[in-house]
């Protein structure tokens, strides 16, 4: 058990990722308000992207931009660019899906006059 705790303390980003993911999941399943559910969904997506970027970090490395391209490139001197590219796509798609879901929530609100799940269910019956 102590070595497990130590392993977790050595990886502060992973612990942050777990906390953000679980907080987002919790609010996603437990809160009756639709906007709060979307905030939870946003936290879940963002926490996974956060962990992806964490994987790319290298100790003592700099940003993946070549200042002097004539010199040969040492791969250890630059952080891993591949997770960055994946997450760039993921962030844009995340905001696109967020826009569509907020549009749906806005249409629901226009018809039923509430963001609350149970108020909407009552009006449906």
């Amino acid at each position: 058990m102590p070595e497990l705790l130590d392993a977790a303390i050595q990886r502060p980003n992973f612990v942050t990722f777990i906390l953000l993911l679980l907080a987002g999941l919790y609010i996603c399943v437990s809160h009756p308000n639709l906007i709060k559910k979307l905030i939870g969904l946003y936290l879940v997506q963002n926490s996974v992207i956060f962990y992806f970027v964490t994987i790319s970090a290298k100790e003592g490395a700099t940003v993946p931009v070549l200042l002097d391209p004539s010199r040969p490139v040492q791969a250890e001197a630059f952080v891993n660019p591949l997770p960055h590219v994946l997450t760039l796509t993921a962030i844009v798609v995340q905001v696109a899906t967020l826009g569509v879901s907020l549009g749906i929530v806005s249409a629901i609100n226009k018809r039923f006059g509430s963001f609350d799940e149970e108020a909407i269910l009552e009006k449906l019956q």
Partner: peptide, 16 residues
């Protein structure tokens, strides 16, 4: 599962 992951900033991490 944290113990099996590479440490933060490890240059020898599998992804790198």
């Amino acid at each position: 599962a944290a113990n099996d992951l590479p440490q933060l900033g490890d240059p020898q991490a599998p992804a790198s």
